Computed example of a mutant assay.
Amino acid sequence: MFIPITHFTYKEAIGKANCFHDKGHGAKCSVSSYPFMAAFGIVQTMLSQIPSFHKLSFLSIIATVMSFSYASIGIGLAMAVVASGNGKVGKTGVTGTVVGVDVTASDKIWKSFQATGDIAFSYAYSSILVEIQDTLRSSPPENRVMKKASLAGVSTTTFIYMLCGCIGYAAFGNKAPGDFLTDFFYEPYWLIDFANACIVLHLIAAYQVFAQPIFQFVENECKKAWPENNFITKEHSMNIPFLGKWRINFFRLVWRTAYVILTTVVAMIFPFFNSILGLIGAAAFWPLTVYFPVEMHISQRKIKKYSMRWIGLKLLVLVCLIVTLLAAIGSIVGLMKSVMAYKHFHS
């Protein structure tokens, strides 16, 4: 949950884009991200009181529209740079950055591992699949609907990722930044502002989509452990202006607020997006996206031990485990370097 908060620097990017537009691209434009992170935490504190995942459909729609919007803008701007023929600021090559010129050999290895973790995080969505499936109607069968939805979602996501990666690299070469919209594009500033605003809205929705399963898991376990505790189980009805009647549970209010505050503070202390992204991606990818689904598939289909299919699936699990460990190592190294070089609570 630190990821959407650390990535909330896109709100900071809006201020920078406006500053560069007003004062010129060579101006020193420094905008602190901490007020924006704090504001993000306040918004999430309010949204976290949404009782369940079933009430998040409007946020999911917003996130989808926003993601398509800013991705399209980023791809379009990168294509414009490629078409102009004079925007490239780094060499291109099959192997990427050049050892001894752009990076050292060790840096390239660690960054490659970290990038693997970033990619893994992009596909670590399995934790919310069950929650999504639980919102579907029984007819047609949920598993068939989810298979089609997963195929469409993964295919679309991969296509957009490939476009962003390939066209972005063609535009900027080995100097390609981690975030095009914050590091290289400043004009037209109004379009950059709009794209960054789309990302902000996407992150607001994304936080809730990933946090709600955690909220509900903890609350359900607490209700099972202390079913007689009114603080945990009792719902109170309150009239809230413009929202009408709203169910308030004091445990939900305290626990979710504390969770948001904790994640916000940690994100403000360690605002290292790429390193944390890779680390969390590595930690979540193998067990949730590979190991458990494969083991459940083997058990459900009763695949014979040591059959070709069984061996193939086990090899897949092993390869993904190795990739996950390498990604975790690279992300930890990157995080350590960032921590040593970073001055906390300085703009």
Score class of each variant (00 low, 15 high):
residue 148 K to M: 04
residue 323 V to K: 00
residue 215 F to W: 15
residue 93 G to K: 04
residue 175 K to H: 10
residue 288 L to I: 12
residue 291 Y to V: 00
residue 242 F to Q: 04
residue 169 Y to S: 03
residue 174 N to K: 09
residue 16 K to W: 05
residue 293 P to L: 07
residue 38 A to G: 12
residue 119 I to T: 07
residue 239 N to G: 09
residue 19 C to W: 10
residue 303 I to R: 03
residue 245 K to F: 03
residue 217 F to E: 08
residue 165 G to M: 04
residue 187 E to W: 06
residue 19 C to Q: 03
residue 329 I to D: 00
residue 255 W to H: 15
residue 334 G to F: 07
residue 64 T to L: 10
residue 18 N to I: 14
residue 79 M to P: 10
residue 289 T to W: 00
residue 88 K to W: 01
residue 182 T to L: 09
residue 235 E to P: 06
residue 276 I to V: 14
residue 148 K to H: 09
residue 178 G to R: 12
residue 37 M to G: 15
residue 167 I to R: 11
residue 27 A to F: 02
residue 114 Q to K: 11
residue 289 T to K: 00
residue 160 I to L: 11
residue 112 S to Y: 05
residue 13 A to M: 06
residue 329 I to V: 15
residue 315 L to E: 08
residue 188 P to T: 14
residue 147 K to W: 15
residue 220 N to C: 10
residue 301 R to K: 14
residue 3 I to H: 08
residue 205 A to G: 08
residue 53 F to G: 02
residue 339 V to M: 12
residue 270 F to I: 10
residue 10 Y to C: 02
residue 57 S to E: 08
residue 39 A to N: 07
residue 52 S to P: 10
residue 1 M to G: 03
residue 120 A to Q: 07
residue 214 I to V: 13
residue 224 K to R: 13
residue 12 E to S: 06
residue 172 F to N: 05
residue 236 H to M: 08
residue 340 M to T: 15
residue 107 D to N: 12
residue 102 D to K: 01
residue 203 L to A: 02
residue 148 K to C: 04
residue 330 G to A: 00
residue 134 D to C: 03
residue 199 I to M: 11
residue 179 D to Q: 08
residue 224 K to D: 10
residue 137 R to C: 05
residue 61 I to C: 11
residue 211 A to E: 08
residue 42 I to A: 09
residue 183 D to G: 04
residue 299 S to V: 07
residue 275 S to E: 15
residue 252 R to V: 06
residue 197 A to G: 09
residue 7 H to A: 15
residue 127 S to N: 08
residue 126 S to A: 12
residue 240 I to R: 02
residue 225 A to E: 08
residue 247 R to L: 13
residue 12 E to A: 05
residue 337 K to A: 08
residue 338 S to M: 03
residue 50 I to D: 04
residue 15 G to I: 06
residue 332 I to Q: 04
residue 274 N to L: 14
residue 266 V to I: 14
residue 14 I to K: 12
residue 240 I to E: 04
residue 9 T to P: 06
residue 64 T to F: 12
residue 325 L to T: 00
residue 155 S to I: 02
residue 168 G to H: 10
residue 261 I to P: 12
residue 255 W to F: 14
residue 192 I to D: 06
residue 5 I to M: 14
residue 32 S to V: 03
residue 93 G to W: 09
residue 257 T to M: 06
residue 102 D to S: 05
residue 8 F to I: 06
residue 150 S to F: 02
residue 267 A to N: 01
residue 83 A to T: 13
residue 200 V to D: 03
residue 220 N to P: 05
residue 139 S to Q: 15
residue 118 D to I: 08
residue 205 A to E: 07
residue 79 M to N: 13
residue 10 Y to E: 09
residue 165 G to Q: 03
residue 112 S to W: 07
residue 172 F to E: 12
residue 26 G to A: 01
residue 1 M to Q: 10
residue 30 S to N: 14
residue 169 Y to G: 02
residue 177 P to N: 09
residue 284 A to L: 14
residue 204 I to Y: 10
residue 160 I to D: 04
residue 239 N to C: 14
residue 120 A to C: 13
residue 122 S to N: 03
residue 274 N to K: 13
residue 242 F to N: 11
